[in-house]
Design a protein around this nucleic acid. Structure first.
Lengths: 334, 334
DNA sequence: CTGTTAGCGCATTCAG
DNA sequence: CTGAATGCGCTAACAG
């Protein structure tokens, strides 16, 4: 932003007024062909590019959108973010993507930054944004621009949500294990979030439907959402319940660690122990045996999010809720 | 950017001039305590947040930086991007992260977008930006802002580069395999890039040092950088050279597919066949057996890139080159 | 067809 | 200590 050539520089050299240059740049009609060509020549010659900020100031439009991600290590969140980024960039928007971390105060701080930049729309990636603090922040700082939460929901007039039926999805996972004769099933939460809450609900529903009692619901929560974390929690499950027949993990990454733990302990997968992950990620393809996984349609989800945001960007900001359906991809671990 | 409260609104309500409000906002001295407090009160009351674009216009500084990534599916590139983003956000900058895709014209287009936004610095993630077209584009559009290329190099006065000695790193991998008695070694390129070129060079150097002839250099190039692609190319290698004793892959992801192919074909890893990947990614931990990998220090690399860019942002734009050293992490596949 | 004027929201002289 | 005036780069309304 130093010494950049302006329309005035061009205008002076062309011997016209700045507004004429502006008209040429924006392809407005009513310019003598000759003038237009001379100006265009000079624009090319000086590599003139309009300043988006200055233009935005007068047009009252920044064409900026913000994408917030809680945890940038979550591969599918990041990937979804870029799917959306690409779609929006194609439409002439510019995306500010930021990793907020899990703390509510930081999320609020980033929302403030987005307001400061006057973004015209926001994507909230993941259900971790489904908190009261975020809701407050939005009401306070971004009350009237379109916002879409991916895999989550916020009851605000300008916030849309696209979610997956992960609860019934996990319930189907329970069914699958039962159908293979595996009735003693543990459930591993890699972290606490509304999304994982829904998954847990599905597990509990599925189990109780089969008459499982409270003490037969084996819920495990881990410290660190990682391969290593999955390895260790699985070892613990095997210690606590040597007779366990199935384990459902909230994400593939952790399940991959679980497969390893089971193998190391001599539990044959899937004969002795059935394992299921969630996300349909590449981790599941690499695992040995390959992981059965619940595809929660994150790709489709983010495409829908992009579409809904675009609609909002281009017109009315009516809050929409969209539901997608998950699907089990059965591979070798069940 | 609609109906946002401005300093004029505040000024009017406070019964002062806009410049006074501006002074309060920027903590300038020389304001009566009483006035200051009244203004601050109103700022809070109206949730006033200054417009970054307007401020940038007069201050001649956007505090925007751009981060370009060729392929957003490359997990470590994305991760590095966010490492940098976080560091820069902490410093009050705002990052525009974009996936460009491999085509040169698109890369140029994105560079144009960055100029339009008047970014004050740029990160180029990955050696795929090390092309003549990009060099031209930079010379034309961003000739005097600090730019740092991660794992690549461009001979321009405002471009710095941080790179890893992947060539000698791969050479060490060859050594490792030889030390285990594995002399018939193939090399798999997942894609064409300067970085992969250096890796290949290391392979060739290592092999020829041991007296390998040209026809004993088994170079394979793949269509699609994926698990599946790694699986298939490995099958092909096994067909072409059933006596192969070692394979080095340019990335872990592909190597993970290779492990599977070897196992499916009944090649014992590592006894019969030694496999090595590059990146020290989580894929290597999930694989069974766990993958030996060349750690190319991408994390440290991006941290250095952030530091160098920050220096450039804050002062002199002298082009710097920094070299980091890779290291083999030996696990179960060798 | 083109130039002049005004103003987007803000920071910064320069007066008072 | 504070207000009025100016300009950042650009578009838009209004004259001519």
């Amino acid at each position: 932003m130093f010494g950049n050539v302006t329309i005035y520089d061009i205008a002076r050299e062309a011997g016209v007024a700045a507004s004429t240059v502006s008209r040429v740049i924006n392809n407005k009609p009513g310019i003598k062909l000759e003038t237009r060509q001379k100006v265009q020549e000079l624009l090319k010659k000086h590599n003139y590019i309009p300043d988006a900020a200055a233009r935005g100031l007068v047009m009252q439009s920044t064409r900026l959108v913000g994408i917030l991600i809680v945890d940038i290590r979550v591969a599918h969140h990041v990937h979804s973010a870029f799917v959306i980024e690409q779609e929006l960039t194609r439409r002439g928007y510019c995306c500010i993507i930021m990793g907020t971390g899990p703390e509510d105060e930081n999320k609020a701080e980033y929302i403030r930054i987005l307001e400061q930049r006057r973004v015209e729309g926001v994507i909230l990636m993941g259900s971790m944004f489904q908190t009261a603090a975020v809701e407050e922040s939005i009401k306070k700082h971004l009350p009237k621009i379109p916002i879409v939460m991916v895999n989550g929901y916020l009851n605000l007039p300008n916030v849309s949500g696209v979610i997956v039926d992960e609860d019934t999805g996990v319930e189907k996972c329970v069914e699958l294990l039962w159908s293979k004769g595996k009735k003693k099933i543990a459930f591993v939460l890699d972290s606490v979030s509304p999304s994982n809450g829904r998954k847990q609900q599905g597990y509990c529903d599925g189990m109780t439907r089969h008459g499982a009692k409270k003490e037969e619901l084996w819920l495990y929560e881990m410290e660190e959402s990682s391969v290593r974390g999955g390895y260790e929690i699985t070892l613990k499950i095997l210690d606590d319940h040597p007779d366990v027949e199935g384990i459902i993990y909230t994400i593939d990454l952790v399940a991959a660690g679980g497969i390893r733990a089971a193998c190391d302990r001599g539990y044959k997968v899937p004969e002795r122990l059935g394992l299921i992950g969630i996300d349909n990620s590449v981790y599941g393809e690499i695992s040995m045996p390959k992981l059965t996984t619940l595809d929660n349609r994150l790709q489709a989800l983010s495409e829908s999010a992009a579409t809904i945001l675009r609609e909002g960007l281009e017109g009315k900001v009516h809050s929409r809720k969209l539901m997608m359906f998950s699907e089990i991809i059965e591979r070798e671990s069940t």
